[in-house]
Design a binder for these strands. Structure first.
Length: 225
DNA sequence: AAGTAGATCAACCGCCTAACC
DNA sequence: CGGTTAGGCGGTTGATCTACT
C-alpha cells in the first residue's frame, strides 16, 4: 500500500480522532492498519501531537509565552520538547517554528549552517577544572546529558547536578525555582552569534548554552530545586 | 493585474533511544 | 547479548500566504 504524504484532509483527521477516542493514543503503526489511513505511524502521531490534540492552543503567541520561551531557550538551548513542556498548550513544533521565524529575529540571532558542536572539545573547560563564573556548558541537542565526560571531581558534581536538575525540572514543576528573573530576556547582544558553534570560535554566551545565571557554581545554582 | 521575494508553518526526514524478543 | 521495532526528537523542506514592485 502506498503511503500518502502532504497535508492532512478533514476526513483523515476525523478518522484519526475517532480512532483515538476509541483506542487511545499510542501504537501508532496500528492506526493505519485498523483505519485504512494511508499514513505511517509517525505521521499519525505527529498529526495528533501537533494539531489534533484537544489541548493544543492555536493562534498567536502572547508576550508572556514569548518571554517564557526566550528564557527557557537561554537555559535549555534547542531542546524544543523540553521547552514546549513548560509552555502550556504549545507543541515542540510550534515553539520551534515560532523561535525560528519570530524570536530569533527579534533577538537578532543569525542561523549558521553546517556548524556542529564538538562536545568533547567544548568540555575542555571542565577537564581543566576552570569553570569560572559566567561560563557556560556546551551541550549538543543530541547529547545524552548524563553521559558527558567530566574529569574534575568538583566540576563533575556541579555539572552532574545541573544536568540532573535540568532533566528533572523539565519534567517536573521545579523550573520556577530557577532564578530566571535575573536574566535579561532581551540580551540581544548575547544572541548575536548563532546556535552551535565550533569550539574554535567559542562564544560562551550563545543561547544554546546552559548559562550559570548568577555566576555561582552550578550546584549552587541548582540547589533547592 | 501579474510577477516575485520573503515569511510562515505543517509535515517529512533521519537519527537516537528504550523496550521487547 | 544482539537484532528489531516503535516512539520521540531536532533539523529541514516545501506548499501556501502575504507584501511589495
Amino acid at each position: 500500500m502506498e503511503e500518502k504524504k502532504g497535508f492532512w484532509t478533514v476526513e483523515e483527521d476525523k478518522i484519526l480522532i475517532d480512532y483515538i477516542k476509541v483506542h487511545g493514543k499510542g501504537r501508532w503503526n496500528r492506526v493505519a492498519k485498523m483505519t485504512g489511513l494511508k499514513r505511517c505511524g509517525k505521521s499519525c502521531r505527529l498529526r495528533w501531537m501537533n494539531y489534533l490534540r484537544p489541548d493544543v492552543k492555536r493562534g498567536e503567541f502572547t508576550e508572556e509565552e514569548d518571554d517564557l520561551i526566550i528564557r527557557l531557550h537561554k537555559l535549555l538551548g534547542n531542546r524544543w520538547s523540553l521547552i514546549a513542556g513548560r509552555v502550556p498548550g504549545r507543541t515542540d513544533n510550534q515553539v520551534k517554528n515560532h523561535w525560528n521565524t519570530h524570536l530569533s529575529k527579534k533577538l537578532g540571532i543569525r542561523k549558521e549552517k553546517n556548524k556542529v558542536v564538538d562536545v568533547s572539545s567544548s568540555l575542555t573547560l571542565f577537564e581543566k577544572g576552570n569553570v569560572e563564573a559566567g561560563e557556560s556548558l556546551h551541550l549538543s541537542t543530541h547529547t545524552n546529558l548524563s553521559n558527558l565526560p567530566i574529569c574534575d571531581e568538583d566540576n563533575s558534581k556541579a555539572v552532574g547536578s545541573a544536568v540532573n536538575n535540568i532533566e528533572a525540572s523539565a519534567s517536573g514543576n521545579s523550573l520556577e525555582a530557577l532564578d530566571l528573573e535575573t536574566q535579561d530576556p532581551a540580551m540581544s547582544e548575547c544572541y548575536e552569534n548563532s546556535f552551535w558553534s565550533l569550539s574554535d570560535d567559542l562564544d560562551i554566551n550563545t543561547p544554546s548554552l546552559i548559562e550559570i545565571p548568577d555566576g555561582n557554581s552550578l550546584d549552587v545554582v541548582w540547589r533547592g530545586l
